[in-house]
Nucleic acid binder design. Sequence first.
DNA 1: AGCTTGACCGACC
DNA 2: TGGTCGGCCAAGC
Length: 116
Amino acid sequence: MEELPEYAERVLEVAELIPRGRVMTYGDVAEWLDEGGPRQVGRVMALYGGAVPWWRVVRSDGMLLPGHELHALAQYRAESTPLRPAPRSAEGHLPRLDMKRARWDGVSGADDGAHI
DNA sequence: AGCTTGACCGACC
DNA sequence: TGGTCGGCCAAGC
């Protein structure tokens, strides 16, 4: 078994802290760790994200993870993560996350704002 | 050493 | 709503 870089371990640790129904942006995670930047976090997730709830770490614009849109969407629906209605019910036009409500700052209030 | 790339971000138009 | 730009930090070539 290959040991993960320490930074990667921290990132994954934070990812696991994100409550059900909430998300954190790559930048938020980086800030929370006070180390690295959004791109580093993204890299870690790309490499090792499979071991944690990767769908709870997202882009700040609320777009679903390219390549995993359907899987992510299924998760969000399953855990009632606030989504924003798609502009039009056109095919290929998937909903985006409602970042205003879904974003989690790291303070363990768990489910405030998200109104389950 | 320099340049490109990446699961990025915010400002601006 | 959507495109571009500069900034960001580390890895790869």
